[in-house]
Amino acid sequence: MTRLTVLILGALATVIFALIVLVILPQSMLGKLQAPPELKPYTLEEARGREVYIANGCIYCHSQQVRDPNITTDIAKGLGNRASVPEDYVHDKPHLLGTMRTGPDLFNVGSRLPAKEWHLAHLYQPRALVSWSIMPAFPFLFQHKAVAESGDTVVNLPPAYAPAHGVIVTTSDADALVAYLLALKHDYAVPVAGYKAETEKDALPISGLQEGKP
């Protein structure tokens, strides 16, 4: 090559072509998606919990998607009763689909593990409930107090993991994060014709992971 115009115009053309195909076209197509009626927008507390989820990088170990049963065993393993579809995510900004399953998928964690106490104790010290877990503990989402004050939520811990004196109470961050996790339920039917037949056929009850219940 000897011409700068060929170089610069060619380089711009390729990247703009990709932008159109992968960003601008989908934007116009996916922008019209309607939320399923069962999928409620996040409450203020859940939205705040989502911020805590992002700030502490939960996404680096947890995905939020149930993949196509034709190529994966996600449904057979109890991650959901159907594959996730774009409509499930219309309230999500940014997306938290995730790329790792160092920890289990959380797309339906609110259905699978509905107990708030379990989540609080698990966040404080995962190994208190799941001995083989490699999830980090999040003690900074909790406070150690001599006695619980009115309005405090005390975390129930097994004696081996409880402090010798005083109690562990939640911060508002921990409460919000758990509210968000409990809101992650996507077990309704999908209101899209194209997907409905397939998902009803494949619908299975959520069996729950063998990861220790409260």
Partner: peptide, 25 residues
């Protein structure tokens, strides 16, 4: 250099929602 500036700017625009944000990501 033009490639980086274009993709980095496009990736950071606060316009995308839902799975579209995953596509841009």
């Amino acid at each position: 250099f033009p490639w980086f500036v274009i993709i980095f700017t496009a990736g950071n625009l606060p316009l995308y929602q839902g799975v579209e944000s995953a596509a841009v990501n």
